[in-house]
């Protein structure tokens, strides 16, 4: 029946922008530090350029994080980046409270791992959406987060 169909109208851009501008800035600050502001503006300009071609209003949060990740990756590509390596070590997960103890160390992670870890533990995005953001498979996204967590723990142990 009609009532069962979830209709997700596209909100006016202003509403979308107000809903996500702060957390996207926080995310980019985490990935890019002082370079975050230009990337933040570029993220919302890209979103606005594509906004009238959206088919529905579902997953807009994941969508804008995808754009932000792409912008950040473009920005970080100037530095050598470790590629994603799949399945060479068992997956590691982290609890949110444990992440809060380690998050100040994410700056030292390679960009892809940093994005995967921050999206997973800082913004609670599922791996399917992180995969979209990284332009990779779900397994690769999980592997990147996992590898990032291991690196964080090593860092943490090194500082302790």
């Amino acid at each position: 029946m009609m009532g069962m169909v979830t209709h997700a109208p596209i909100p006016p851009f202003e509403r979308f922008y107000l809903a996500h501008r702060d957390e996207v800035l926080g995310y980019l600050r985490r990935l890019l530090g002082q370079r975050a502001e230009d990337a933040w503006q570029e993220t919302f300009l890209r979103a606005l350029r594509a906004y009238d071609r959206l088919q529905h209003g579902r997953h807009l949060r994941a969508w804008v994080f995808t754009i932000a990740t792409n912008v950040a990756m473009d920005e970080l590509r100037a530095k050598p980046v470790n590629g994603l390596r799949e399945g060479d070590e068992p997956a590691v997960e982290l609890r949110q409270d444990a992440f809060r103890e380690l998050e100040h160390l994410t700056d030292d992670l390679p960009p892809t791992e940093r994005a995967a870890v921050v999206l997973r533990y800082g913004y609670d995005l599922p791996y399917a959406q992180i995969a979209d953001a990284l332009g990779s498979s779900e397994d690769a996204a999980r592997a990147a987060a996992s590898s990032g967590v291991r690196r964080l723990r090593r860092e943490h142990a090194g500082h302790a």
Binding site: F13, R21, D22, E23, L25, G26, R29, E37, W40, Q41, F44, L45, L48, R49, D52
Partner: peptide, 23 residues
């Protein structure tokens, strides 16, 4: 992390300047 009024204004100006806004 709050977007400052300056950053917000810069974005709005850029969006209008690029002709990306319907209304």
């Amino acid at each position: 992390m709050q977007v400052t009024p300056e950053l917000d204004a810069r974005f709005r100006t850029a969006a209008l300047g690029e002709g990306l806004v319907d209304v």
